[in-house]
């Protein structure tokens, strides 16, 4: 049961609310057929507004157009667009059973009883909740509810699946399990999916591409890898993962920082750049390094996160391997490679 993916195009879609707030600056965007596109950003950045425009729950300002494949759906209300929606709050119908919820869209479409039963059973099996079919909604856990919500949205074979922070209400372990499951599901179905989240780990794990948004504008669009390794600006760099800022001076083949010098292969002059915590290493004995003092050390299991001062003008966040014995107050020597630096233009 593969749903052929729908290509979505937005042209000049802005949104101004009745009270005059500009939620979204004019946006041009193309979502490829079968792609999972994640909108990522802090609250109020316009990501949910964009989702609601695609859903048909909001209308774009004049001039904005939304196309599903070659069909202009701008004027179509949500009930005519055939989109599946999954909400943070699950939004399951409390007056219907699990099976009743999943069957609802089919009932509205007047799918015959036998066919409806078959589809519901198929959906229950796909989400591995067959044993919950006759339960009422208030007997389900959060994770189970979201599975039902997914099954309900997918039962009608929507052209596009829209997910609005679907995992935010769940606790950490469950969130990860369901995230993996959603990922597998989206790949298998080949459905075009728009996923809104403020959680960068979720965005990176699920997105074919990520749209980072800030204040109603797109800050960067790209593959998770590109967004993380080559952030377009300081906002993106800061929002995705942790970032350290370095400012030093290159002189006579040496990079001079408050903690010492490193051999450096670039023309003389000031150097401004950013660096991810995992790009900093503890220098081996006998090799060049920058000396600093550990202010705090958090053991995280798979690694330890250090805060080191004295190396650069600002304290650095460093991810060190978990087997080295380090605690606050220790002196460490750090090094990094030139190609790990992220140039920051602004």
């Amino acid at each position: 049961m593969t749903t052929p993916g729908t290509r979505i195009r937005l042209t000049g879609c802005a949104k101004t609310f009745a009270d005059g707030t500009r939620a979204l600056e004019p946006l041009d965007l193309e979502v490829n057929a079968g792609e999972t596109l994640v909108f990522l950003g802090p609250s109020g950045c316009g990501k949910t507004t964009t989702l609601r425009l695609i859903a048909g729950l909001e209308m774009p300002d004049a001039c904005g157009r939304i196309l599903f494949d070659d069909e202009d759906v701008t004027a179509l209300p949500i009930e005519k667009r055939n989109v599946g929606m999954v909400f943070q709050s699950y939004a399951l119908f409390p007056n219907m059973s699990v099976a009743g919820n999943i069957a609802y869209g089919l009932k509205i479409r007047r799918v015959p009883e036998a066919e409806r039963r078959r589809r519901v059973a198929e959906m229950l099996e796909m989400m591995r909740i067959t044993e919950l079919a006759d339960r009422s909604i208030d007997q389900l856990s959060g994770g189970q509810r979201q599975r039902v919500a997914l099954a309900r949205a997918l039962a009608v074979e929507p052209r596009v699946l829209l997910l609005d922070e679907p995992l935010t209400a769940l606790d950490a372990k469950l969130r990860e399990d369901l995230r993996l499951e959603i990922d597998r599901l989206l790949r298998r179905l080949g459905i075009t999916a728009i996923y809104v989240t403020h959680d960068q780990a979720e965005a990176m794990a699920l997105g074919d591409r990520i749209v980072v948004m800030s204040k109603g504008k797109v800050a960067q669009i790209g593959r998770p890898r590109d967004i993380y390794l080559k952030p377009a600006d300081r906002f993106v760099a800061d929002f995705i993962g942790n970032i350290n800022r370095l400012s030093g001076m290159v002189r006579n083949g040496l990079l001079e920082l408050p903690g010492g010098t490193l051999p450096w292969d670039s023309p003389d002059g000031p150097l401004q750049a950013a660096l991810r915590p995992e790009s900093l290493r503890i220098a081996e004995d006998g090799l060049p390094g920058l000396t600093g003092t550990v202010i705090s050390a958090f053991f995280l299991g798979d690694r330890q996160r250090l805060l080191v001062e004295g190396v650069a003008p600002e304290p650095l966040i460093v991810d060190a391997p978990n087997r080295i014995e380090i605690s606050a107050g220790d002196t460490v020597r750090l090094t990094f490679d030139a190609d790990a630096l992220i140039p920051l233009s602004h």
């Binding site: 859903a55 939004a91 119908f93 509205i108 949205a153």
Partner: peptide, 15 residues
């Protein structure tokens, strides 16, 4: 009333 419920129903095609 949870407005999301109404939006969910509409997304499923409900008039």
């Amino acid at each position: 009333l949870d407005r999301r419920l109404e939006e969910a129903a509409r997304s499923l095609g409900a008039s």
